[in-house]
Structure formats: C-alpha cells, structure tokens
C-alpha cells in the first residue's frame, strides 16, 4: 500500500485492521512475564505526535495523532525522582518525535544529572543549534547521551518511500550535525527487506554515512512490529505467532523487555514501549504499582520473544 493511500486511510485504519482476522490463544496457555527489576525506564515523551507519517509506524504516529500527548518537564521529573528509589539503570525517550516536545532539552538535562539517557528521534529537528545544545548537555554529565536516528533506507528513494518525501535529506542533515558535535548516533533501521539483502543494505548505509563524515557509523537493524500502520502496510501476524507456556521453558526471559522495563506516558504506565496502543497494556498510574507480572498475550510479544528486547540500544537483532 502506498504512503498516500495509507494517509487517506489513516483515520479509518482501525476499521481496516479489524478486517484482518485475529487469532486469540487459549486463555490458559498464556504465560506471564515477571518484572525482575525495573532497569530500563521509557518515556513516551513525544506522545503519538510526529512530524512524519511513516508507513511502518507500529503506533501510527502522525501530525494528527493526539492519542498520547507531550509529557511536560515537571511530569517527567516526578517519575525520575521515583525511579531513583527503585534503582533504575537507564532512561529512554521516544514518541512520536521527542524533539517536537519543547521541554525535551530540559528533560535531557534533568535526566543526565542522574543517569544515562537515549533519545529515539527521526533526526529532522536537529539543526546545528540543537546539536550544540545536546553537546553541551552531554559534556556536562558523566553519563552517556545516546541519540538514535531512524532512517529506513540508505538512499533518498528507498527511505522516503517509507518515511515521507524529503525525510532522508533532513535526517542526514541531523546526523551530520550530531557527528560534527561529537556524537556517534545509532542509526536505527527497521527491516523492510528480505534477509538475503541485509549485508548489501548494511554496507550501503556504511557508505552513505561515511560520505557525510560519519566515519565509524553505529547501525542497528530491527525487525518491524506488525501492528499499527505496519499491520496494514505489510501483513499482521500469522495465527501461530504468539507465545505459549511451552515456549517459555528454558527460555531466558530477560530477553523480553517487560521483565526489566516499563513505559511511562501522559496516560499512565504501560508494560512496554511497543504496546501502548492496547488499552489493556496500561499497568498502573505510578511506577511503584507497575511491578505485577504481565500476560504475554499480544502477538507483538512474539517479535520480542524471537528477536530479543529489540527496543534496547544493545539488544539482539536478527541480523
């Protein structure tokens, strides 16, 4: 499905998605995942509001999607304070587009005063001025500030087909600004190609990034999550693609993000960064109450199971 037709359908995509048959596993065959320790704390700091309209977005973010809103600095601060008591190890910020949130730089300052932070961005709102501010914030902290820039093709043609016209050129400008200010951004690429193409695409990215002066590029490839708009773009999960109790035998459940992390939004605490579109994935209003085990009943859990905690900077990937 083309970007234009997806946009046209976006307001009614839930109707389209509902037409794709769903498979529900038997209730008594659903395993639960305990929260071993809250190491990774996510913030949906940009809500579902984005300046792009990507065809594979698993929570269907767009300029018009206000399902989740921006999180103000004070609200993030409140959760950061709570996280210190819990002993959280690292902080991640996503959206939507985090840099659309006017409080973002302040939020990063607050966070880097207490621990390492990662921002997942499309790179478009990182002009030189912002890159310099980010550099100053990073240099003022003993902790790492990681910037992850999503780019889905190493050419304008392949990327823009997924992320929208002009997005490649703008994102690469953001990457260049980051690199010139001492960052080594992690280029995050959602796999929309056959496995046999991976090496060619990896090398293509390396070459393109080197050409803009990024000489030792960090590239992370992740599998697409077949929910949200991606469910319409490609296909949803097959009916066998869910986690059963049997599959958890001898499985290292630390690979599942929900065993070591939680996601804070302006609407409360969710089990993980992937499932915020599912109302049942909201686990509590405060972090302290978010420690109950969670049933792995969603088909997106299957991707996490197969590929390892894909949202983490240093997670396993299929490639």
């Amino acid at each position: 499905m083309s970007l234009e037709s997806l946009k046209a359908h976006d307001s009614t995509w839930e109707i389209i998605a509902a037409e794709i048959p769903k498979y529900k596993p038997k209730f008594d065959d659903i395993p639960s995942a305990p929260l071993h320790s809250l190491d990774t704390l996510w913030f949906q700091v940009g809500g579902t509001i984005c300046n792009l309209w990507c065809t594979h977005c698993f929570i269907s973010c767009s300029p018009k999607n206000h399902k989740f809103g921006f999180m103000p600095r004070e609200e993030v601060m409140k959760h950061l304070e709570e996280s210190k008591e819990i002993g959280v190890k690292e902080y991640y910020f996503t959206g939507g587009e985090p840099f659309m949130n006017r409080d973002m730089l302040g939020i990063l300052e607050d966070t880097l005063a207490i621990g390492p932070a990662t921002v997942l961005t499309n790179g478009i709102l990182i002009p030189e001025r912002v890159a310099k501010r980010l550099k100053a914030i990073s240099e003022n902290s003993i902790y790492s500030l990681e910037i992850r820039v999503s780019i889905d093709g190493f050419t304008e043609e392949t990327n823009d087909k997924i992320r929208g016209e002009g997005s490649f050129r703008k994102a690469m400008a953001g990457v260049k600004n980051l690199v010139e200010n001492g960052f080594l951004p992690i280029i995050t690429v959602a796999q929309t190609w056959e496995d046999s193409e991976t090496e060619r695409i990896f090398n293509g990215f390396k070459k393109t990034l080197t050409e803009v002066g990024y000489n030792r590029p960090r590239i992370k490839m992740i599998p697409p999550l077949r929910i949200g708009r991606e469910k319409v773009r490609s296909h949803g999960y097959d009916k066998y693609e869910y986690i059963t109790k049997e599959m958890m035998v001898d499985y290292d459940d630390h690979l599942l993000q929900c065993t070591t992390g939680r996601m804070v939004t302006d609407k409360g605490v969710y089990v993980c960064p992937i499932l915020i579109d599912s109302p049942e994935a909201k686990v509590s209003d405060t972090l302290a109450e978010s420690f109950e085990p969670y049933p792995l009943k969603h088909q997106a859990c299957y991707t996490c199971y197969i590929s390892g905690a894909i949202c983490h900077n240093f997670s396993a990937s299929e490639n």
Partner: peptide, 14 residues
C-alpha cells in the same frame, strides 16, 4: 557496568 551508563542510585541499590 560502564562508568557512563551506571547511575549512582543504581549502585546504591546494589
């Protein structure tokens, strides 16, 4: 446990 990725409050919990 890297220096730049390990918060004080995390270590205090340990």
């Amino acid at each position: 446990l890297w220096e730049s990725a390990t918060p004080n409050h995390f270590l205090e919990k340990l």
